[in-house]
C-alpha cells in the first residue's frame, strides 16, 4: 500500500518529464532528419561537417572554455574568501542579486557602459590612454558572459567549502602542512564536486549563448546558439536548426559525463 502511494506521487513528475523533456528531445532528433523541403535525408548532418559549421563549433567550444576557466579563476578565491567572512549570508546575497535581473536589461546596460562614450572609455580618456573600442569585440563578449555566469560558479564551490569539516584543515596544519600544501592536498580535493557542478552550470549554457553574441559582440562571435536561432526564426530551416541542437545535446551529455565521471583525485 505504501509503495503504491509513493508511485502515485511520481505521476506529476513522470508526466512533466515525458511532456517537457523526453518528447521534445525525440522531436528535435526527428526534425533533424528532414531537409528544407520536408524530405527525409541526412543532408543536415553532412552540412554540419562543412568548414562553416565545424569552425562555428570550434569557436563555440573555445569561448565556452575560456568563459568557464575565467569564471573558475575568479569564483574559487571569492568563494573561499566568502566562507571565511563574518556576514556570509549578506555577501552571498549581494553576489546572487545581479542574477535576479533580466539578462536583456543587463546586456543593454553593458552597451552603455562599454560604449564609445561610456564610463570606461571616459576613464581611459582621463588617464590619457584615449578612446578604445571595447563594445563589439570578442573581449567584451567574454567579459559580459563571465559577469553573467559567475554567481553560478560561486554558489556550488561555496557550498562545497562550507561542508569541509574544519578539523580536517586543522589536522593538516598540526601535521606541519604549509597553507599551500594544505590547500592542494586537503581543501581543493574536498571541493572538487563543487568545482565540477560549477563548471557544468557555466560551460553548458555558455556553449549555446546567443543573444549577447549580437548585443555585446555585434555578431563578431557566432556560436552554435546564434545559428540555431537563425535557422528557426529566419530561414525556417528547422531541420538544420534541429541538427545543430542534436550536436549541442550530445556535447552537453559528454561534458556532464566527463566532468562528473572521475572520482576524487587524492
Amino acid at each position: 500500500m505504501r509503495n503504491k502511494d509513493r508511485n502515485v506521487y511520481l505521476i506529476p513528475y513522470g508526466l512533466w518529464m515525458l511532456l517537457f523533456v523526453i518528447i521534445p528531445l525525440v522531436l528535435v532528433a526527428y526534425f533533424s532528419l528532414f531537409d528544407i523541403n520536408g524530405k527525409v535525408s541526412l543532408i543536415n548532418y553532412q552540412r554540419f561537417f562543412t568548414p562553416v559549421y565545424l569552425k562555428m563549433t570550434l569557436s563555440s567550444f573555445f569561448y565556452a572554455l575560456v568563459i568557464t576557466a575565467v569564471s573558475l579563476l575568479v569564483a574559487y578565491p571569492t568563494a573561499y574568501w566568502l566562507s571565511k567572512t563574518k556576514h556570509k549570508q549578506l555577501w552571498l546575497l549581494l553576489i546572487i542579486m545581479p542574477s535576479w535581473m533580466n539578462l536583456l536589461l543587463k546586456a543593454y546596460a553593458f552597451i552603455g557602459i562599454l560604449g564609445k562614450y561610456g564610463p570606461i572609455n571616459s576613464f581611459l580618456v582621463a588617464l590619457g590612454i584615449g578612446t578604445h573600442q571595447i563594445l563589439f569585440t570578442s573581449f567584451s563578449f567574454m567579459f559580459v558572459a563571465v559577469y553573467i555566469f559567475i554567481p553560478f560558479m560561486i554558489l556550488p564551490i561555496f557550498g562545497a567549502i562550507e561542508e569541509i569539516n574544519p578539523s580536517l584543515t586543522a589536522a593538516a596544519y598540526d601535521l606541519g602542512a604549509t597553507p599551500w600544501f594544505a590547500f592542494r592536498r586537503v581543501i581543493f580535493p574536498l571541493t572538487i564536486s563543487g568545482v565540477q557542478a560549477g563548471c557544468q552550470a557555466v560551460f553548458i549554457p555558455a556553449l549555446s549563448l546567443f543573444m549577447i553574441t549580437r548585443l555585446i559582440a555585434g555578431n563578431r562571435v557566432i556560436t552554435l546558439g546564434t545559428a540555431i536561432e537563425q535557422h528557426f526564426l529566419v530561414t525556417q530551416d528547422w531541420g538544420m536548426g534541429s541538427t545543430l541542437a542534436v550536436f549541442l545535446i550530445i556535447t552537453m551529455g559528454l561534458t556532464i559525463w566527463a566532468t562528473s565521471g572521475r572520482k576524487r583525485v587524492g
Binding site: G115, K116, L135, R214, L215, A217
Partner: peptide, 17 residues
Amino acid sequence: VKAIVGDELKVLLVNEE
C-alpha cells in the same frame, strides 16, 4: 564593419557610437 545588430542599431547611431 563595426557590428551587425538588430533593433539596437537605432540607439547606437543616435548616440553616435
